[in-house]
Simulated scan of single mutants.
Amino acid sequence: MLKILDWYILKRYLFTFLMMLLLFIPIGITVNLAEKIGKILEKEVPFPAVAQYYLDFTINFANLLFPILLFLSVIWFTSKLANNTEIVAFLSSGVSFSRFLRPYMIGASIIAAFALVLGLYLAPKASKGFNQFKYKYLKSSRDVMQTQNIYRQINDNDYIYVSNFDTRSKRGNNFTLEHFDGNKLKYKISATTIKYVEEDSTYNLINYVKRTIGDHDEIIESQRRFDTVFSFDLEDLTPVKYIAETLQYNELNRFIEKEKQRGSSNIGRYEVVKYKKWSLPVSVFILTIIAVAVSSIKRRGGMGVNLAIGITIAMIYVFFDKVFGVMAEQSDFSPIIAVWFPNVVFGILALFLLRNAKR
């Protein structure tokens, strides 16, 4: 009997969540397409590129709304069980509330595993394609993504500075490279313009000047135009904000370590992305427990009351998640605390609601 009930609830859990995704994703695509169709037609974007963009958009959209859609789907079908007095029948047959919760936890485990794979591998690749398409076809010349005042340590001896760098044209202004031996400056390269030449992986410098500092004199070299190879990568000049979202987990770890060595100011943002890959699967269990505890009670107002309560809790969860995430990105607030604090708070809420539901 219990196995039949387990399968019944588990199938409803997974089916309702899938239906919620299939319902909201086309809505998101339609809204986005209505907003972007003008620029897509204007720039005559090839259909395969558009199709790939909306595939990437779908994965990004699902990853973004994952917790909320899961939460609402559990409230929806559990409220229907409560309104049909099916939950009362289960519990009246001698099934404990903890036992009744077991198929929900099995379903949450399946969804959490999917969320983990999505966050670690699928979403980064989709985010990269999504952002590349957006900045290639959908941004106007005024909206070209630029990085400003880049000052970075490349290795133990070299430091670079660029006042701004245009990621579309791969061109920067007021470039400087300083090479030190210990605390002593050995030489300094400067140029009014630096441009990355993708065909042969070289850098083209305009108004190139190299000042080599000796023990007793200085040697100055200058050329109107100079092509050379540097030890740093193009990414060192283009630390775009979304770069962490485009890296798979192992790549992200290596990237963060590299940025720490260079003294990057964006470490908080990168670590928020890293920790969220693990916090999202955990939130699946927490939100499932809250949703079951809230919606398993048959209320006078019916399903609408349960949905109203659920939406309110979901919005508070999103508010906490966004506020603490921004704090970690733009201040010295600990990224790991910022990411896990909403889960801790709502985990305590889940235990409290579960205890009352058992009564």
Rank of each mutant, 00 (worst) to 15 (best):
L2H: 12
I4R: 13
I4M: 09
L5G: 05
W7A: 11
Y8A: 09
Y8M: 14
K11S: 04
K11M: 01
L14E: 10
F15Y: 10
T16F: 02
T16H: 04
M19D: 06
L22G: 13
I27G: 06
G28N: 11
I29R: 08
A34K: 04
E42H: 09
V45S: 15
T58P: 08
F61E: 14
A62Q: 10
N63Q: 05
L64C: 03
F66N: 11
W76I: 04
T78P: 03
K80Q: 12
K80S: 09
N83F: 06
N84F: 06
T85P: 02
T85R: 14
A89N: 13
F90V: 12
S92L: 01
V95F: 03
R99S: 07
L101N: 07
R102L: 12
I110W: 04
I111D: 13
A113C: 04
A115F: 10
L118T: 05
F130W: 10
F133I: 02
K136I: 00
D143N: 13
I150K: 13
R152E: 10
R152D: 03
Q153D: 11
N157S: 14
N157E: 12
D158E: 04
D158K: 03
Y159R: 15
Y161V: 08
F165G: 08
F165R: 02
T167H: 12
K170H: 15
K170C: 14
R171N: 13
R171H: 09
N174L: 07
E178W: 10
H179R: 15
F180D: 11
F180H: 05
N183P: 00
N183S: 15
N183V: 12
K186F: 02
Y187H: 10
K188R: 15
I189H: 04
S190H: 06
S190M: 04
T193L: 14
Y196R: 05
Y196T: 05
V197W: 08
Y203M: 05
L205V: 01
Y208M: 11
V209N: 15
T212M: 12
D215R: 02
I219D: 14
I220K: 06
E221D: 13
Q223R: 07
R225D: 10
D236H: 01
L237P: 04
L237M: 08
T238D: 12
P239C: 15
P239I: 14
I243D: 03
Q248H: 09
Q248V: 04
R254M: 00
R254W: 01
I256W: 07
K258R: 13
Q261K: 15
Q261P: 01
S264W: 08
S265Y: 02
S265K: 09
V273T: 09
K274G: 07
Y275N: 07
P281N: 03
V284D: 14
I289M: 07
A291I: 00
A291G: 08
V292E: 02
A293E: 08
G302E: 09
G304V: 06
L307C: 02
I311T: 11
M315R: 03
Y317I: 00
F319N: 02
F319L: 10
F324L: 15
D332R: 06
D332C: 00
F333Y: 15
P335S: 04
I337H: 10
I337N: 02
I337K: 06
F341D: 08
N343H: 05
V344A: 14
F346A: 05
F346N: 11
A350H: 01
F352G: 08
R355Q: 00
N356R: 03
R359E: 01
